[in-house]
Design a protein around this nucleic acid. Structure first.
Length: 877
RNA sequence: AGGGCCGUAGCUCAGUGGGAGAGCGCCACCUUGACGCGGUGGAGGUCAGGGGUUCGAAACCCCUCGGCCCUACCA
């Protein structure tokens, strides 16, 4: 404790390594199974292996760590399982980009070599984010670390797939899906981001066959007309009734297509006539099915046109070309600017294409029911509750989930096709022969599963499923999930579906949905905007504890966090303050013999009582995931109560007291410090350990496993009396400040009170009052002395003798100002208490409180008026 | 189009039916034996605006304005 200022770099790594060596974070399933300890289990949302730690991760893991460390100290066997996600599309993309630098594509190197390359990449960088988490102090059970593609997990995934397939909940079919022509894979509905974009509505004339004139259709995608199979109108639309059943000639292609009637068409929009392109539009696909129309594909999987006369042209080039050709032929009636939502790939932002292809799907409706029920009955709770709506909204409208991806990095679909009979063999291990015809001529499906399919199994896959492990028995279901709202659909709801289906039980009890971390202007942080705050840089500059405390202090429920380096810097002051509190206490201990009896002074009971209140508050706020309130309570206690008042009080005895007084003060200092460090440990693990280790009253090998403090002290009366002493000191300082008397000028003080207990407390604390308010002497008096400035507190009058220092005029001004304020309050209260409705309808205690307040104000008013009169007399005289 | 969130001190935000609060910033003063990353004292608010419910509203309801987000296949 030699250093004058807080320097976290000197001890953070040291203590983290110590904790790892001691295996404090390792959960013992046997202790739980034997009933020796209650369990508390959490799974860490696995970050992408490609990931680099950002503030969102920091917030996420800090909040979990706070709860886990708190529970650990409360005696729970805490099992917090970390790991990483293989992040199929994202990871593949990173490696493909590397290849591209060498001028290669994945197809050039081939599947096997490519996968080797990805694995190598994962070996090299996959643990980066895990190591970064450790810098933050994360207390995960690293012995249980998992990866969504490790051997056990792969087995779990195959088991789940096969089971769902046999139950008819997974099927294969040719459907229209979202396709990313750049990533070259199918995407689920969720992986498509819709963004408003400025486009056009092109009005195109389709000549009516065997008649005169045209039917005009409006479209945002003229290039798809090559695949049109009909024109649809609303059946009730009088304008077009005569045309239904007739044919029109599709321009450029010169194909005759029917005019059909379908409810789907909105007569109000555009011309009320819609071109139908089943292979390239989701709505059109459905219309076509209702009318038994074929789907004509005119684009390949790279987004290139396959139909003449534009074969080989990119979809957007083709749009220009077709519009130009239509214009030339006089078939383009008009063009209107039009804003519409366009789907983009969530990974590479390429515009996605509805694409007709063979894919695997999960039937989600049957799986969703139990999950919905669980949230309804609060078997699973969302915190804050408002997120339930988001969850329900999606679950009620859930659609089948496309789980096949045309990439290589991921869990390969365990399906083998028979070349002889076409049968699909689905099994966990590669079959030797076709189960239908016995042929050995089999080949495996090329596709892999959506990454979210495996992460949906995270809460039980990490515990060893499908084996019936002790871990599963001890730790499933987990207790808490902490995550961001952006993956409620992707991940949270799917874990619920899978958890109930395979475990027959919920995967977790509480889902705490945390905020999004924005920059100080409220904008999302992004590398392109350059407004990111790098948590590791912050750890280096200010310490992990400071960053953690900042995040906790800002984590109010249901609101985004605006973070700036300035705020983090501000909270380092708090860490520094704690450092200095400890420094003072350790130096105070040097000259004290701790053995022997102690006798509490009033201020001792006061701070111990406050400590108990704080323990109560912190416990409650942690229980309710109100991290900001817990942080605030500790901050307030340590700084505003302990440092500002108690430590100042204690100096009287530490520096000037007899042996017993010194010992008592030291004893209380150390008790409060220890318990306060424990309260703070979940939020600031390193600093609290550093201090705890130096405490003479340490009650465990490490604060990590130290018992959570209990509520032992309740001295309400002492608490109240010491509060009044504080008010006296504050009042004297205030008088000096307002009368422009330098704070250091000693003054004489008289107090008058009928409250013997209070007078006794004042007597005991006289030395503190003299020192802290710079008072020369404090006397008890039975009547108001003259030549004094006075103020009044509940049950006591205080007179400050200012003698010739007094400036009568400014004191008169001061009192008049006060009287004015009091008068206003009295009037307000009198009016309230004159209101019969208030007296009749308000609860009695509220009325009583108001009455008492009024009485008190009236008393003070009278006393102050007396003083004022005295002063006025002095002025005249 | 539907849904949600937010608007409180200069800034960032707590506060959800009975006294308008915190941190930072600001002003003045202080080399007080842990800390100037400190101490003491202080200034500062029509709780976005309007209406309603209530004895009583920053809080509950409705409307308006302003900011943000999510969901959705309207060509």
């Amino acid at each position: 404790m030699e250093a004058n200022t807080y320097n976290p770099a000197l001890f953070e790594d040291k203590w983290y390594n110590f904790w790892l060596e001691k295996k404090y974070f390792h959960a013992d399933e046997k202790r739980v199974l034997k009933g020796e300890k209650p369990k508390f289990s959490v799974v860490l949302p696995p970050p992408n292996v490609t990931g680099v730690l950002h503030v969102g991760h920091a917030l996420n893991s800090t909040l979990q760590d706070i709860v886990c460390r708190w529970k650990r100290m409360k005696g729970f066997e805490v099992c917090w399982i970390p790991g990483t996600d293989h992040a199929g599309i994202a990871t593949q993309w990173v490696v493909e980009r590397e290849l591209a630098k060498e001028g290669l594509t994945r197809h050039d190197v081939g599947r096997e070599k490519f996968l080797e390359r990805v694995s190598k990449w994962k070996e090299q960088y996959g643990n980066r984010i895990i190591n970064q988490l450790k810098k933050l102090g994360t207390s995960c059970d690293w012995d249980r670390e998992r990866f969504t593609m490790d051997e056990g997990f792969s087995k779990a995934v195959r088991r789940a797939f096969v089971t769902l397939y046999k139950e008819g909940l997974i099927y294969r079919g040719k459907r229209l899906i979202n396709w990313c022509p750049r990533c070259h894979t199918a995407l689920s509905d969720l992986e498509v981001e819709h963004e408003e974009e400025q486009g056009n509505l092109w009005y195109i004339r389709y000549p009516v066959v065997g008649g005169d004139g045209y039917i005009v259709v409006a479209t945002t995608r003229p290039e798809t007309m090559l695949g049109d199979v009909a024109v649809a109108v609303n059946p009730d639309d009088e304008r077009y009734k005569h045309l239904v059943g007739k044919k029109v000639l599709l321009p450029i292609v010169n194909r005759e297509i029917p005019v059909i009637a379908d409810e789907y068409v909105d007569p109000e929009f555009g011309t009320g006539a819609v071109k139908i392109t089943p292979a390239h539009d989701f709505n059109d696909f459905e219309v076509a099915q209702r009318h038994n129309l074929p789907a004509i594909q005119i684009m390949d999987d790279w987004g290139r046109i396959t139909a003449e006369p534009f074969k080989g042209m990119d979809r957007f080039e083709a749009r220009e070309a077709i519009v130009a050709m239509l214009k030339e032929e006089g078939l383009l009636e008009k063009v209107e600017p039009y804003v519409h939502a366009v789907g983009h790939c969530y990974r590479c932002k390429t515009i996605v294409e509805p694409y007709l292809s063979d894919q695997w799907f999960v039937k989600t409706k049957p799986l969703s029911e139990k999950a919905i029920e669980a949230v309804k009955t609060e078997e699973i709770r969302f915190i804050p509750k408002q997120w339930e709506n988001t969850f329900f909204d999606w679950m009620y409208n859930i659609k089948d989930w496309c789980i096949s991806r045309q990439i290589w990095w991921g869990h390969r679909i365990p399906a083998w096709y028979c070349k002889e009979c076409g049968h699909i063999n689905v099994s966990e291990e590669a079959p030797e022969k076709c189960e239908n015809c016995g042929s050995t001529n089999l080949y495996q499906d090329e596709d892999v599963l959506d990454t979210w399919f495996s992460s949906a199994m995270w809460p039980f896959g990490t515990l060893g499923w499908p084996e019936e492990t002790d871990d599963l028995k001890a730790f499933y279901p987990t207790d808490l999930l902490v995550t961001g709202f952006d993956i409620i659909f992707f991940w949270v709801s799917r874990m619920m579906m899978m958890g109930y289906h395979f475990m027959g039980e919920k995967p977790f009890s509480d889902v705490y949905v945390h905020a999004l971390v924005r920059d100080e202007k409220g904008q999302k942080m992004s590398k392109t905007k350059g407004n990111v705050i790098d948590p590791l840089e912050m750890v280096e500059k200010y310490g992990a504890d400071t960053l953690r405390f900042t995040l906790a202090a800002l984590a109010a429920q249901g609101r985004d966090i605006r973070l700036s380096e300035r705020i983090i810097e501000g909270y380092r002051h708090f860490a520094n303050k704690i450092w200095n509190i400890a420094k003072f206490i350790f130096s105070a201990l040097e000259n004290v013999e701790m053995k022997g009896a102690v006798a509490y002074a009033p201020e001792d009971r006061w701070i111990l009582s406050k400590l108990s209140d704080t323990i109560e508050t912190v416990d409650r706020e942690f229980e309710n995931y109100r991290f900001n309130d817990a942080a605030k309570a500790i901050y307030q206690f340590l700084w505003s109560e302990f440092a500002d008042w108690y430590i100042e009080f204690s100096k009287q005895r530490i520096y000037k007291g007899n042996e017993e007084e010194k010992r008592t003060a030291a004893h209380v200092l150390v008790t409060v410090l220890r318990d306060a460090m424990k309260l703070l440990h979940p939020i600031m693990p390193f600093l609290t350990e550093e201090i705890y280790q130096k405490l003479p009253n340490r009650d465990a090998e490490s604060i990590v496993i130290a018992p959570w403090p209990s509520i032992e002290y309740k001295f309400k009366k002492d608490e109240e009396r010491v509060e009044i002493v504080k008010e006296i000191i504050r009042g004297i300082r205030n008088v000096k400040a307002e009368l422009n008397i330098p704070p250091s000028t000693p003054v004489e003080v008289f107090v008058r009170s009928d409250n013997d207990k209070l007078m006794e407390t004042i007597g005991k604390m006289a030395a503190s009052i003299r020192q802290l308010a710079k008072v020369s002497e404090i006397h008890s008096t039975s009547e108001a002395p003259s030549g004094c400035v006075s103020f009044f507190l509940p049950g006591i009058e205080v007179y400050v003798k200012v003698g010739e220092l007094i400036d009568v005029e400014s004191e008169i001004f001061r009192i008049m100002k006060k009287l004015k304020g009091i008068e206003k309050d009295i009037q307000k209260l009198e009016k309230k208490l004159a209101n019969e409705n208030f007296l009749k309808k308000a609860p009695r205690e509220v009325v009583e409180k108001n009455r008492a307040e009024l009485e008190e104000l009236k008393e003070v008013f009278e006393k102050l008026s007396g003083t004022l009169q005295q002063l006025k007399d002095m002025e005249i005289g």
